[in-house]
Simulated scan of single mutants.
Amino acid sequence: MIRNMLVSAAVAATMMVTGVAKAEMAFKPLKEDPKEIAFGIISTESTSNLKVQWLPFLEDMEETLGMKVNAFFAPDYAGVIEAMRFGKVHVAWFGNKSGMEAVDRSGGEVFVQTSKADGNQGYYSHIITHADNDKINKLEDIFKCDKSLNFGIGDPNSTSGFLVPSYYVFAQNNVDPKKCFKTVRNANHETNLMATANKQVDIAANNSEQISRTKLKQPASAEKIKVIWTSPLIPSDPMVYRKDMSKELKSKIKAFFLGYGRLGDVAGARKVLAGISDGMGLFMESNNTQLYPIRQLALFKDKLKIQKNAQIGDADKKEMLSKINAKLADLAILAANK
């Protein structure tokens, strides 16, 4: 039977103090393969909703691997990243930004990528507002920056809810959300969408997956929001496991993912996948190179912030930008040859 572990706020806070605040510390190595797999699930929605989506999949994973698979939930993305860093999570579903953090800080390794039922391997970030709001119809309408609007942004480790809008919407338009809006609130995709539909925030970051899922599950709420901005295509989510598990166990896990919906009870597996997010398709081969565009995006965002920061001296600014440009050049070569 699947056992669910919900990380308390106190434990998450402890992880933040001992982990994120000391990001230079190496991840805690595994002494041996785990006897049970802890599967981390990022908090894109409420835990109750995520359980409904993921537990049938984890039950099939448990049966195929022949070992217990426990669902691990945390109140924010950082909780899953840090749990992997300390060996409390062995496999996890991440977005690209949180997956990048898991690879860099938590001994993670991308091994497969999600897809849609039609084979599409991407999704979009959106800025949304209430459907009845006739004063906001395009991105420029939110840039009056008179502190009259309440803005809902995503988890700081979310790709579509935070990184992508931070760069494309705000950094490229030289707008600081904290100086522009009355309030800026961090929340998951589901909460931000419902807050917009219920007029608790004026605008919010969201994504195409959450909007599609809401149309299926709560169509009345979906009808209350409208999209005013759409990002470039974002690569589909990575699945990440601890790279220091044995090759044998990693191979078994990867084989399960790549075989799921292709081998055995194909119809049953595809029905389970269809119930995850807005309808998940088969898992596709992937590796850490899928994170290159996200790394470039994060560096471009940092570069813009440094260029526009008048408090940084010219010499320091030149040195900082030189380091970022060197990293971007390396990434460009790697991306071209992946």
Rank of each mutant, 00 (worst) to 15 (best):
K217P: 03
V17F: 08
G107P: 12
I211W: 06
S236Q: 08
K317I: 01
K247W: 00
D265M: 07
A23L: 13
D104P: 06
I324M: 11
N309E: 02
A332H: 03
P75E: 05
S115I: 02
A315L: 13
N325R: 03
T18S: 14
T47N: 11
N309M: 01
K247T: 06
L328M: 15
Q53P: 00
I306Q: 09
A315P: 00
T64P: 06
P56V: 07
E45L: 07
S322C: 01
V227G: 07
K28W: 00
K35E: 15
L331Y: 05
G40W: 01
I333G: 00
I234K: 05
R242W: 06
F283C: 06
S43C: 04
G161A: 04
N174Y: 04
V112I: 09
V112W: 03
V164P: 04
K199S: 15
I333Q: 07
I127G: 04
E59M: 09
Q218D: 13
L193N: 14
K226M: 05
I228E: 08
V184I: 13
Y260N: 12
G275K: 03
R213D: 08
E63R: 15
T191V: 12
S231D: 10
F94K: 03
G154A: 08
A117P: 01
T183G: 05
L304K: 12
Q172L: 12
K323W: 01
K327R: 12
F300A: 12
D316M: 11
F162H: 10
I225T: 14
P219I: 05
G259H: 01
L258W: 11
K51A: 15
H126C: 12
K305A: 15
N186I: 02
T214P: 00
K138C: 06
A74V: 07
K224M: 13
S236W: 02
I128H: 02
K323Y: 01
V20Y: 15
S148V: 04
L58W: 03
K31E: 14
I127W: 01
I312N: 02
K318N: 09
A102W: 02
M194E: 13
T47I: 10
K250E: 15
G268T: 10
S277C: 01
L233F: 01
Y241I: 07
S106G: 09
L6S: 10
F39I: 07
H126M: 14
T214N: 00
K301E: 02
S46F: 09
G264L: 05
G107S: 09
I42G: 07
T44N: 15
K250F: 14
D146P: 02
E109P: 00
V272F: 06
K116M: 14
L304P: 00
N174D: 11
I228W: 04
I128N: 05
L6I: 15
A336Q: 08
S106M: 01
L328K: 08
I333P: 00
I324C: 07
S208V: 02
A71Q: 04
A78R: 04
I333N: 04
A23D: 12
P34R: 04
L321C: 05
D134F: 09
